[in-house]
């Protein structure tokens, strides 16, 4: 077994945990946290591939930096939305956000 496979497996598992959280948690802030877990999982994969694969030329690591930056932006905006929404609806429960019900 190659080293890269272990790291990728770690990333996959963390990703699935994050995804599960996103799907099931009712508190929207926890959903945001789980999203961060998924992003971290992807970053692990990128850095690992960049570290072990010849020809990656460090681009994976660089991408992880971009992702971290964008994650920061995403969290800022996302939580701003959550707070704005909370102000109107007095709730952070995802299943109460259903104005777009068909």
């Amino acid at each position: 077994m190659n080293a890269l496979y272990w790291w990728l497996t770690l990333a996959v598992l963390l990703f699935c945990i994050g995804a599960f959280g996103v799907l099931v948690r009712r508190n929207v802030i926890v959903v945001v946290m789980c999203l961060e877990l998924m992003l971290n999982a992807v970053n692990i994969a990128l850095v690992a591939i960049s570290n072990f694969r010849a020809g990656a030329l460090g681009a994976g690591t660089l991408f992880s930096l971009f992702i971290i930056t964008l994650a920061a932006a995403e969290v800022t905006v996302g939580l701003a939305i959550v707070i704005a929404n909370y102000r109107n609806r007095r709730t952070v429960q995802t299943d109460q956000y259903d104005e777009l019900k068909g």
């Binding site: 190659n2 080293a3 890269l4 496979y5 990728l8 497996t9 996959v12 598992l13 990703f15 699935c16 945990i17 995804a19 599960f20 799907l23 850095v47 591939i49 960049s50 570290n51 072990f52 694969r53 010849a54 020809g55 990656a56 030329l57 460090g58 690591t61």
Partner: peptide, 27 residues
């Protein structure tokens, strides 16, 4: 989620990721 974990793990582990050394390559 469990199925996804299983499938993705299998996919990742059996994937042909090409030439891989143990040497660290990160810049």
């Amino acid at each position: 989620a469990v199925a996804a974990a299983a499938v993705l793990t299998v996919v990742v582990v059996t994937a042909d990721v090409g030439q891989i050394g143990d040497k660290a390559l990160n810049p």
